[in-house]
């Protein structure tokens, strides 16, 4: 439908989704109407397009859950694995082929509950993998059970009287475990998320982007947080830029979502260090 008035740039802009969607698979996705997973997916598409990476050299790995369906839609090398194990599968891919860009798409239950051990160890190892953790505070695919990021007192189908447990802060956990790049954004801040994902992919070492997202179908409904629009708008109200948050007291930050680049350190990457050992030992059999 390109017309004479459509410039090359606009053409590119409108073709970008078709360029990165898997032929023969196609949309619509399995996600509910208004699900933030799709917003994160488009942010990933735009970030990768801006970086100009070859689709052949990107491996997208995921586990099980709503967010983990993403690699099936995107036209990269896709590895849709078992629940919680996306990071060790990705570790195998990256370590065997360090020239490939490995992106893991995971959810809060997948990465922090069943995959919690793999998560901290991938951070510790500082292997060059970009993990995009879509945090919607609940298990969506199985129907709204409490997850490690379900806040205290929040409702889910397995916390019908309010969650008695405390929740994880995935970004703080990653930074404490040794991840060398940690950022957080929300689906409201989709353009900022695109930028952070781009930075994370370019970063050499383990990078985490926590994408705060909405599950209005379960979390929103059970906690009376309204429709997707209300939830997405609430992220706007609750978010505080990291620069501003540094000047705020813990009381003021209660209930807020600190967004932006939270942590970055310049340190050695696992595959690089191992390769230097291989080079040093060359031919010593």
């Amino acid at each position: 439908m390109a017309t004479a008035t459509t410039s090359e740039k606009a053409k590119q802009k409108s073709d970008i989704f078709l360029k990165y969607l898997r032929p023969r698979k196609g949309m619509p996705s399995v996600w509910c109407a208004g699900c933030g997973n799709g917003i994160v997916m488009t942010a990933i598409i735009r970030a990768i397009d801006k970086l100009g990476l070859s689709k052949d050299n990107i491996v997208m790995v995921s586990g099980i859950g709503c967010s983990s369906r993403m690699p099936i839609y995107l036209d990269f090398n896709a590895l849709h694995t078992t629940h919680g194990r996306a990071l060790p599968f990705a570790t195998g891919v990256k370590f065997a082929r360090p020239d490939l860009k490995v992106i893991v798409v995971t959810g809060d239950g997948d990465a922090l509950a069943i995959g919690g051990n793999h998560f901290i160890h991938a951070c510790r190892r500082n292997i060059d993998i970009t993990a995009i953790l879509i945090n919607n505070n609940i298990y969506g695919m199985t129907g709204g059970q409490g997850s490690p990021t379900t806040p205290s007192a929040a409702f889910s189908t397995t916390t019908p009287y309010g969650n008695a447990e405390k929740h994880f802060d995935p970004s703080a956990l990653a930074a404490a475990s040794g991840a060398s790049y940690v950022a957080r954004s929300t689906v409201y801040h989709a353009t900022a998320m695109e930028k952070l994902i781009g930075e994370a992919i370019s970063h050499r070492g383990f990078s985490l982007v926590e994408a705060v997202s909405n599950c209005h179908t379960y979390y929103g409904r059970l906690n009376r947080q309204g429709d997707p629009v209300t939830m997405i708008n609430s992220f706007k109200e609750k978010s505080v830029q990291v620069t501003k948050a540094k000047k705020m007291s813990p009381e003021e930050l209660k209930g807020k979502i600190v967004i932006g680049k939270l942590h970055e350190v310049d340190t050695t990457e696992f595959c690089d260090v191992y390769q230097s050992t291989v080079d040093r030992l060359d031919g010593r059999k």
Binding site: T6, I16, S29, W31, A33, I39, R46, E194
Partner: peptide, 13 residues
């Protein structure tokens, strides 16, 4: 950028 279903694209120049 907020359409979760990739249903909106731009015709703009």
């Amino acid at each position: 950028v907020h359409c979760p279903d990739l249903a909106i694209t731009s015709n703009y120049k």
